[in-house]
Amino acid sequence: MILPQFLILAAALFSLGVYGLLVRRNAVMVLLAVELMLAAVNINLVAFEAALRTSQAVGQVFAIFVITVAAAEVGIGLAIVLMIFRNRQSANVDEFDLMKW
């Protein structure tokens, strides 16, 4: 196995995530797409670890950190979506355009 095969896979998964991030209207779906991107990043971290074989498995440690932070992100993200939904009766991101002139 060689490193680029994992990197290309991760790139493809990340690009899929970006696509979802850009096209999805529903905020929950946007968060799903973000999860895809985070998974792609984790593949990269673990693959680099497997290529470099650091003595303390740094790549895997950081993959674990990413997973943990992602869990926190989902919790907060969904709470925010819930809040917005309650106030606006909609979870469509393209309707939240208050951050403008």
């Binding site: 991030l21 850009l22 946007v30 991101v93 393209d94 939240f96 355009d97 208050l98 951050m99 403008k100 002139w101």
Partner: peptide, 9 residues
């Protein structure tokens, strides 16, 4: 300010 559409995406 026209650039600031407010659309996050």
């Amino acid at each position: 300010r026209r650039l600031q559409t407010g659309r996050v995406q």
